[in-house]
Structure formats: structure tokens, C-alpha cells
């Protein structure tokens, strides 16, 4: 049965969002090589379907706690490419005035509580945000995104227990890209089926093909519906793959080129694009127009970051403590 027009429009919007993340990050890698961006740069390329799909299940009132691989999460929460690029340039117009960089993107209107670069460190914070909502009677969900590496941290288990014990509305959105930096899942976990891990805490769980944005969206909507109904947590594992190196310093000794190539055949963008083409919804002209629109947005973000000012050094010690009282 063919899809309805509105579904196809929606799929095109998902494709556009994934393409924005892809092209933005490809440019970021270039700018890293050109020494415009420094520090660590962790690319999400290959994993775009996860953030895009999960975000579809959340509303503006919901909160997101993410990791150091979070350019995509910031974008799907509505942060502009300009604010992210300027942040990576270390400029004043960056979302955090250039103080956080690639790994620490924060946004108030996006309700994005970082960018946490300590693996597992965001989980307790997400539990606390959900606790605040529960105590204040807010009907909101906190989505905590983390990689499968975090499952090995004590904070994962503590957070799972506490969220279940206190029945807190947290979507634990695990992005399983199979490698904790360079350590394969089977080298670090005794049980590699992650959805089994939460049973001991009484947290319902599901796994989804993280290379299929439509599937991720459906699974995330199911998960959030469960959370809103029960008030309690849910664990959703998206099985995905990082096409690029862990960071710009990674020689990728731990996985074969064949393996990477096989996963690239499952590229979430190519797959959805092909589907839409086959359904006659996306022709070459439409695709070219989409590419151009995204390329223009990326170019605009780079130009914006280039011309943004540096924060005056005199403000170095500002915001160690709050300027205001109460």
C-alpha cells in the first residue's frame, strides 16, 4: 500500500533534517583540518537517524541531556547551525560563548542540558530533571541520549534503578554504535543484548534499527507514549553505526574497512532517499534543491562563525559564579 501524501512530506522532512546534520558535520571535519575548529570533534555521521527519529517523539517542553557527540541533537532541538558553528569556532556568538566547544552545547529554549563529555555523567542529571518535573506536576519527559559505552558505567545502573524506584519520566535513549571509542561491545559487556539489562530494574525496553529513521521515530513515539502513560522510565536502544572515526585523532585500528563499508550500505540518508525516489516523491531536481538549501545554510553558518567576535579576555572569570542573586 502506498503511503499517504502527508507521510511522504513527513519523510522528506526527516530526510532534510538528517542531511542537515550530515553536511554540517562534513563541513566541520573540513574546518577541523583547516584548524578553524580545535579540541575534540566527534562526528555523528552514520547515526543521524537516531537523533532525528527520537526528536520526533519529543515536544518543545521536553528536555534533552546529550553526550559529546551532540551536534545533531542540538540541531534537531532547533538550535541554529550558526550557534553551533560559532561555538566550535570558539566565538562569542556560539551557544555557550565559545566556552564549551563541540562537546558542550547547551540551549535554554531548546531545553538542551549539555553536551556531557563524561561517559554516563548525564544520566543522573536527566533523572534529576525528571524528578523536578514530577515534584512540580509538569507533564514532561526528559530524554537522555548516551552511547552503549555508558552501559558499563555505574551511573547507568544507579540511574536506571533510581528512575524506576521513583517512577520518573526519563527516556533512556541508548545509541549503540558497537564501539566505546575503540573497544567493541563484546570486549566490554558480558551480556551484549542491552535491552536485557534493564529488566532487573523493572524498566521496559525495546531495540530498533537505528539506521532506519522511520523505525526509530515509531519506536521513540511508542516509548514516549508509554512514559507519559506510566509516568516511569523506558529504555530504547537504537542499533546504529559511526561511519567516521571516533574523533579526529582515531586511526581506526579496531575495526575493518569491510565492516565500515558494509554499514555504509545501510546509510540512513541514502536509504530514505532511495525509498522516496522509488515512490516517485523525490526527483533529481527536488534532491538538488534540498542539497542546495542545506549547503546554503551550512555556508551561512560558516560565514557567521567567521565574522563573529571573540569573547573579551576580560570576561574569562565571568560565570564562574552567577552575576545575579536568587
Amino acid at each position: 500500500m502506498s503511503k499517504q501524501l502527508t507521510d511522504l512530506e513527513h519523510d522528506l522532512a526527516l530526510l532534510r533534517q538528517m542531511l542537515r546534520i550530515r553536511r554540517f558535520e562534513e563541513k566541520s571535519a573540513e574546518l577541523y583540518s583547516a584548524m578553524k575548529i580545535r579540541g575534540f570533534l566527534h562526528l555523528y555521521i552514520g547515526e543521524e537517524a537516531v537523533a532525528v527519529g527520537v526528536a520526533e517523539a519529543l515536544g518543545a517542553e521536553d528536555a534533552v541531556v546529550a553526550t559529546y557527540r551532540e551536534h545533531g541533537h542540538a540541531m534537531v532541538r532547533g538550535m541554529s547551525m550558526r550557534a553551533i558553528m560559532a561555538e566550535m569556532y570558539g566565538k562569542l556568538d556560539g551557544c555557550c560563548r565559545g566556552r564549551g566547544g563541540s562537546m558542550h552545547l547547551f540551549g535554554v529554549k531548546e531545553r538542551l542540558y549539555g553536551g556531557n563529555a563524561i561517559v554516563g555523567g548525564g544520566l543522573p542529571v536527566a533523572v534529576g530533571l525528571a524528578l523536578a518535573d514530577k515534584l512540580q506536576g509538569n507533564n514532561r519527559v526528559t530524554c537522555c541520549c548516551f552511547g552503549e559505552g555508558a552501559v558499563a558505567e555505574g551511573e547507568f545502573h544507579e540511574s536506571m534503578n533510581l528512575a524506576a524506584l521513583w517512577n520518573l519520566p526519563v527516556l533512556f535513549a541508548c545509541e549503540n554504535n558497537l564501539y566505546a571509542m575503540g573497544t567493541a561491545l563484546e570486549l566490554s559487556e558480558s551480556v551484549t543484548n542491552l535491552t536485557e539489562k534493564t529488566a532487573g530494574y523493572g524498566v521496559p525496553s525495546a531495540a530498533v534499527d537505528g539506521m532506519d529513521v522511520v523505525a526509530v521515530e515509531a519506536a521513540a513515539k511508542q516509548a514516549v507514549a508509554t512514559i507519559r502513560q506510566s509516568g516511569g522510565p523506558y529504555f530504547l536502544e537504537s542499533r546504529t553505526y559511526r561511519f567516521r572515526a571516533h574523533s579526529m585523532f582515531d586511526p581506526e585500528l579496531y575495526r575493518s574497512k569491510d565492516e565500515v563499508e558494509q554499514w555504509k550500505q545501510r546509510c540512513p540518508i541514502e536509504n530514505l532517499k532511495t525509498q522516496l525516489q522509488q515512490q516517485g516523491w523525490l526527483d533529481d531536481a527536488k534532491w538538488a534543491a534540498l542539497e542546495k538549501e542545506v549547503a546554503d545554510e551550512v555556508a551561512d553558518a560558516v560565514a557567521f562563525a567567521e565574522q563573529s567576535d571573540w569573547e573579551p579576555v576580560e570576561e574569562l572569570t565571568r560565570f564562574v559564579y552567577s552575576d545575579r542573586e536568587g
Partner: peptide, 11 residues
């Protein structure tokens, strides 16, 4: 950490 999150959330 939950204290930090709850503080961020208005408590």
C-alpha cells in the same frame, strides 16, 4: 547528579 538535575529543573 539527580540533585543537580532537580536544581536545573527549578527545585
Amino acid at each position: 547528579g539527580a540533585g543537580i538535575g532537580a536544581a536545573l529543573g527549578g527545585m
